[in-house]
């Protein structure tokens, strides 16, 4: 399975990459929405996208809106990664086509729970 991690923080990407790879995901990464769209175009769609909210160039909400316009990525589960201060954004992201959200700070267990909810935990 393949996961796309979109976050402007190297650290966050490293953490998420680590967690996902240990769960058998192949990962691709991008620093912001524009790059994420570019990565998807190059490497094909993914099973899962973990998307940060506040990023330069193109933020999480704009990315969700954009990516949902493309039917190629219709099956892609999108999980918004946000902080407690961004809870209000979650609703607008879900309205725009996000599947679920993950709140920072999170634990691996929370990630597992979310993956299970999304049906992406077959091998865990």
């Amino acid at each position: 399975m393949k996961a796309l991690v979109v976050d402007d923080s190297n650290t966050m990407r490293a953490v998420l990459r680590r967690i996902l790879q240990m769960r058998g995901f192949e990962t691709v990464e991008a620093k912001h929405g524009v790059e994420a769209l570019h990565v998807l175009a190059q490497t094909g769609t993914a099973d899962l996208a973990l998307v940060d909210w506040n990023m330069p160039e193109m933020n999480g909400l704009q990315f969700v809106t954009e990516v949902r316009k493309n039917p190629t990525h219709a099956q892609m589960r999108i999980m918004m990664v946000t902080t407690e201060t961004g809870l209000h954004e979650v609703q607008s992201a879900i309205d725009a086509g996000a599947t679920d959200y993950l709140m920072k700070p999170f634990t691996t267990g929370q990630v597992d729970d979310k993956l299970a909810l999304l049906g992406l935990d077959s091998h865990a």
């Binding site: 402007d8 966050m12 506040n54 700070p105």
Partner: peptide, 18 residues
């Protein structure tokens, strides 16, 4: 925006790293 995002990022990642 940039200033806010920077501190936001630090807070977010710090949180994840405990």
């Amino acid at each position: 925006d940039g200033i806010f995002r920077g501190i936001h990022t630090i807070k977010g990642t710090s949180g994840v790293l405990g």
